[in-house]
Amino acid sequence: IEEVKKIVSEIQSKQLTRITINGNTYQVNSPEELVEYVRKVFS
């Protein structure tokens, strides 16, 4: 979970619009959307 928080804060600070998780690239339009992807991947 700490690793996830680190990734999320990194993305928020860079305002990235794409994230790659487990080889899948997602278009991310908002931090909320990012959190949803993270929940799916780590749930």
Rank of each mutant, 00 (worst) to 15 (best):
I1Q: 11
I1T: 12
I1W: 14
I1V: 11
E2F: 10
E2Y: 09
E2W: 12
E2A: 12
E2G: 08
E3H: 10
E3N: 11
V4C: 15
V4W: 14
V4Q: 07
V4G: 02
K5I: 10
K5S: 13
K5V: 10
K5D: 15
K5W: 14
K6P: 03
K6C: 11
K6R: 12
K6S: 09
K6Y: 08
I7P: 00
I7G: 01
I7R: 01
V8P: 01
V8Y: 04
V8D: 02
V8S: 02
V8L: 13
V8W: 05
S9T: 10
S9R: 12
S9H: 13
S9P: 00
E10Y: 13
I11C: 04
I11P: 02
I11Y: 02
I11E: 01
I11N: 02
I11D: 02
Q12C: 14
Q12M: 15
Q12W: 14
S13L: 11
S13Y: 07
K14F: 06
Q15R: 11
Q15K: 13
Q15S: 09
Q15L: 09
Q15G: 13
L16S: 03
L16H: 03
L16A: 03
L16C: 13
L16P: 03
L16N: 02
L16G: 08
T17N: 06
T17F: 08
T17E: 02
T17A: 04
R18Q: 12
R18I: 14
R18G: 05
I19W: 06
I19H: 00
I19V: 10
I19D: 00
T20M: 04
T20Y: 05
I21D: 00
I21E: 00
I21T: 00
I21M: 03
I21A: 00
I21S: 01
N22R: 09
N22D: 09
N22K: 08
N22A: 08
N22V: 02
G23K: 01
G23H: 03
G23N: 05
N24F: 14
N24P: 00
T25V: 11
T25E: 09
T25F: 09
T25R: 04
T25K: 03
T25L: 10
Y26C: 07
Y26I: 14
Y26E: 01
Y26V: 11
Y26Q: 02
Y26N: 01
Y26R: 01
Q27G: 04
V28Y: 15
V28A: 15
V28L: 14
N29E: 10
S30F: 06
S30I: 05
S30Q: 02
S30T: 13
S30E: 04
P31V: 12
P31S: 09
P31Q: 01
P31H: 06
P31G: 01
E32V: 04
E32N: 08
E32P: 03
E33K: 05
E33G: 07
E33V: 03
E33Y: 03
E33W: 04
E33S: 03
L34T: 00
L34I: 01
V35L: 07
V35P: 01
V35N: 01
E36R: 04
Y37E: 08
Y37P: 00
Y37K: 08
V38A: 02
V38D: 01
V38F: 04
R39E: 09
R39G: 04
R39A: 05
R39K: 12
K40A: 09
K40F: 12
K40G: 08
K40M: 11
K40I: 10
V41L: 15
V41R: 04
V41P: 00
F42P: 00
F42N: 02
F42T: 03
S43A: 13
S43E: 12
S43T: 08
S43W: 10
